[in-house]
């Protein structure tokens, strides 16, 4: 039993850091530019596809990772300059719809370029296999490395935001947009950079998840809504919130998925019914969490410090 719990904790952590990479960008864009960007998942998909294609053609992950990052980052900045810029002063409804249109476009464009069949890319050779980090629990090296990279990026992002001038501007922008403008900073450039940074992180998440799952059209939407849960639970505009929110959501979701079937089978004898019920109920869990947070702590559990 402990072995099962430990393995599930690791799984939850892995989902958590992946969500963090997506949520970090989303929460910054949300907090600084006030934009609800539904198309954030598309950047995740673009990163995954670019890396998978390069990995398939060249067989080299040393080329694939930069290619994925480049594609996601460039796509992000392009989207910011062509579309997002015009949405900053609009209400949320317009933002939701325009970025929804963007999802449709991105999905179809990728289908046109790559086809409808999912791509299955192999694990980078050095990271294949399992390792017994905890005695008796062999765990996928690749999943462990996702956790490692994710945590390293979290630290890097913390340093960037706390210790650099860009970070100072981002922090200021998240809490008070006008102050930044008053400082004489080129706010347009700052916005483009922040959007690009968010896209880069989303793209990196996509690159890493590609070999684990399969790279397919629609993968972005599957994870997007959960990313919104993270942002809301953590607190809009707060990187710290995104981090803790992601870990909480990742672990809650994984644990519910792990334990719900057992509980349900205690109540319902038919396995098919019990498992369907537990699949549904465990998926509901994080949304319930989000609704509760919105009702009782609308600013989120870890709001941006002002």
């Amino acid at each position: 039993m402990t072995v099962f719990v430990l393995e599930q904790l690791l799984n939850g952590l892995q989902l958590g850091v992946t969500l963090f990479l997506l949520a970090a960008g989303l929460t910054l864009i949300f907090g600084i530019m006030g934009i609800i960007n539904l198309a954030h998942g598309s950047l995740y998909m673009i990163g995954a596809y670019a890396a998978a294609l390069v990995a398939r053609e060249t067989g080299s992950w040393l080329l694939a990772v930069p290619a994925g990052l480049l594609a996601a980052g460039a796509a992000g900045m392009l989207i910011e300059m062509v579309i997002m810029r015009r949405l900053y002063d609009r209400d949320h409804l317009d933002q939701v719809l325009a970025t929804y249109g963007l999802i449709l476009f991105c999905n179809e464009l990728v289908t046109l370029l790559v086809g409808r069949q999912p791509m299955f890319v192999g694990i980078p050779p050095g990271l294949a296999g399992a390792i017994e980090l905890i005695p008796g629990v062999p765990y996928s090296i690749y999943r462990l490395s996702i956790i490692g990279f994710g945590l390293a990026l979290a630290v890097g992002l913390y340093l960037l935001i706390q210790k650099t001038r860009l970070g100072m501007l981002i922090r200021a922008g998240a809490t008070n947009r006008d102050t930044v403008r008053a400082l004489g900073v080129d706010i347009r450039l700052l916005y483009t950079l922040v959007f690009g940074l968010g896209a880069l992180l989303a793209g990196f998440a996509g690159i890493m998840m590609g070999p684990l799952l399969s790279v397919q059209v629609g993968m972005g939407e599957q994870i997007l809504i959960m990313t919104f849960v993270v942002v809301v639970v953590g607190g809009v505009g707060s990187i710290r919130g995104a981090f803790f929110g992601a870990i909480i959501v990742g672990i809650v979701d994984t644990m519910l998925r792990g334990f719900m079937p057992g509980w349900m089978r205690g109540i319902i004898s038919d396995t098919a019914q019990a498992d369907a019920l537990s699949a549904g109920l465990s998926s509901m869990g994080v949304y319930l969490l989000m609704a509760l947070v919105l009702l009782f702590r609308p600013q989120g559990l870890f709001p941006a410090r002002t």
Binding site: M1, V3, Q14, V137, G258
Partner: peptide, 16 residues
């Protein structure tokens, strides 16, 4: 689930 892509939880259950 028919639209599931991540089987980490199932792997843990099998191992257990």
């Amino acid at each position: 689930r028919l639209d599931q892509t991540d089987y980490a939880a199932e792997m843990a259950a099998i191992r257990a």
